[in-house]
Design a protein around this nucleic acid. Structure first.
Lengths: 121, 121
DNA sequence: CCCATAGTTCGGAACTTCGGAACTATGGGA
DNA sequence: TCCCATAGTTCCGAAGTTCCGAACTATGGG
């Protein structure tokens, strides 16, 4: 458990980032870590929207984000603090993260309405 | 087979785009369609780098790109012509596609050297 | 030493992806 | 018209991935 693996920024691959953020829960977790002034415990994110994420799935989501090079996790006492690696990733792949985060943000407005429409059928 | 389904641009979801482009073969296919002046037959893309892609996998890749809203396919005689929906997607999610395409492009330089280094061990 | 809390690992069920073989659709001769 | 060639699609089994509950490990506080 101890040695949390973080890839060096030059080993970060675009496909890993896209794969990590192609899951809306993971994208939401990542967006929260970014917005939250860059440090957040895993358990603070146990829900996305109104959906509860089981601990084991959460643990896996964090692992995927970590191994994609998107976040850095450190043990602080009994909990894990997660910081986004935004600046590093932005330097390596300029425009990638803003594009993705904006896409999800602009979609968030459309999504509830879609859900209503779907429910109305 | 006949009715090729294309989502309306407002139904296109960011996670579908990320998922479609998280596969390097599909990203390469999409980049080629874009660069090639926007129209290309499926079979013109039967290889990515030096790797041959079987017909059935190719067909599936095109389907994923189509259903993600990234390309538009039309039958022209016996073949399918594929055009990228870049402008529409760019209008809906500004910066998303350039960010992704640039990330892959800037990684392409790093990749062969990585391969050499790995081979040298 | 024991307990509580925070995460990780394990393992099986459900889902996805890959690719070969067989199939369908379209157009061009003869 | 019939047959052939070409371009894609569908089917299906093997291999891989994801999800999540249960059991486990690590850390710190009585």
């Amino acid at each position: 458990m101890r040695p949390l693996f973080h890839p060096a920024i030059e080993d970060v691959r675009p496909e890993a980032i896209l794969h990590a953020l192609a899951d809306p829960s993971r994208a939401a977790i990542f967006a929260t870590i970014m917005r939250a002034g860059c440090v957040e415990a895993c358990s603070a994110l146990a829900a996305v929207g109104d959906r509860v994420i089981p601990k084991s799935s959460l643990s896996n989501h964090f692992k995927v984000l970590r191994e994609a090079g998107l976040i850095r996790s450190e043990r602080h006492g009994v909990e894990l603090r997660n910081a986004s690696r935004w600046a590093e990733v932005e330097a390596r792949f300029p425009g990638l993260l803003p594009g993705i985060i904006n896409a999800y943000a602009s979609d968030a407005g459309a999504c509830p309405r879609d859900a209503e429409r779907a429910a109305a059928r």
